[in-house]
């Protein structure tokens, strides 16, 4: 509910109200999908470190993606999208300016890329994860207090408290949480809470060979992402966009945000997520009005024809 702490200092502390002096700088992930190579080291490292159960294996037919979605047993999920897309180094739908066009050509030359006009396959890869929202609907609706905000500003389920009511599952606008079969409780990414407490970076970020997954203090990550976005735009990647980097969005900004090369829904992400609990005031008003109407209706039934 509270906004991102507005401390001017370089190390704003997460939720100082709740933790006082124990509050630590808010941390998160910046997942730069433009350098993801789809190796799935993050998925494996996450499973190994957190001892996450195996998930349904087999061949899905959806490119190289066989885990398909985040869930109780998948806390990092690498999406693979194959797009038929002209390389567009010159001509038609190319760059916005000659400078951009030149930059693109230079980039292609430096990389030694062979391009053919009018055809090409673009392969998008992206490692998805819990967004650790500033306004986390899962945490807000949890009736037991099992979901809580850590001193790092992350969102974690306490497995010794969760009673498996399942309310957080449809509350999450990203479909991150799920109940584990045979266990009955809800599981999700903890942003490696145990490692954070030992000043270690999360396992997925540690394992990522291209630094597509960057871990750090959120404010610093946002600056880094801005610079990267500017760099990509200058290089002619006008489609590049930041997703969840701003505190003004429907969940108050993500703790784990992304740089994407197409619209979020192409990656299975909602384009305009809103925490449903943002509207709880209006919802309670409707509940109260309906309760009053019900009471009035019952009373009216007695007035109608008492004799």
């Amino acid at each position: 509910m509270s906004a991102v702490p507005e401390t001017a200092a370089r190390q704003p502390r997460a939720w100082p109200g709740a933790y006082g002096d124990e509050a630590r700088p808010r941390v998160g992930f910046f997942t730069d999908t433009s350098v993801c190579i789809g190796c799935k080291a993050c998925e494996v490292a996450c499973k190994e470190w957190n001892r996450v159960h195996d998930s349904i294996q087999g061949f899905s037919g959806s490119s190289y993606d066989n885990t398909l979605a985040l869930g109780a047993n998948t806390w990092r999920h690498v999406a693979f999208i194959e797009q038929r897309k002209p390389a567009a180094l010159d001509g038609e739908a190319a760059a916005d300016s000659l400078v951009q066009l030149a930059a693109r050509r230079q980039l292609a030359d430096e990389a030694g890329v062979e391009t053919h006009e009018g055809e090409g396959i673009r392969w998008l890869m992206s490692s998805d994860v819990c967004k650790h929202c500033t306004e986390a609907a899962c945490l807000d609706v949890c009736p037991t207090g099992a979901l809580f905000r850590t001193e790092f500003g992350t969102v974690v389920v306490q497995e010794d408290v969760c009673n498996g009511c399942g309310y957080c599952v449809p509350a999450c606008p990203f479909g991150v949480l799920d109940r584990r079969e045979g266990d009955g409780r809800v599981w999700k990414c903890t942003l490696c809470y145990d490692r954070l407490r030992d000043d270690q970076e999360p396992a997925c970020a540690k394992a990522c060979p291209t630094d597509s997954i960057q871990f750090g203090e959120l404010d610093e990550l946002r600056e880094r992402a801005d610079a990267r976005l500017a760099e990509l735009h200058a290089a002619g990647q006008g489609e590049a966009l930041l997703y969840g980097a701003d505190p003004g969005d429907g969940v108050g900004g993500f703790g784990a945000f992304f740089l994407l090369l197409d619209e979020p829904e192409v990656y299975g992400l909602p384009p305009d997520p809103v925490a449903a609990t943002r509207r709880i005031g209006g919802v309670w008003s409707a509940v109260g009005a309906a309760a009053a109407a019900l009471a009035a209706g019952i009373a009216a039934a007695f007035l109608g024809g008492r004799r």
């Binding site: 600056e223 801005d226 610079a227 500017a230 735009h233 966009l241 997703y243 701003d246 619209e263 305009d272």
Partner: peptide
């Protein structure tokens, strides 16, 4: 929209 997508880089500096 509430603005989860941001397409334009920040102007001028890299500062957020």
């Amino acid at each position: 929209s509430e603005g989860a997508e941001r397409r334009a880089p920040a102007r001028g500096t890299q500062a957020y």
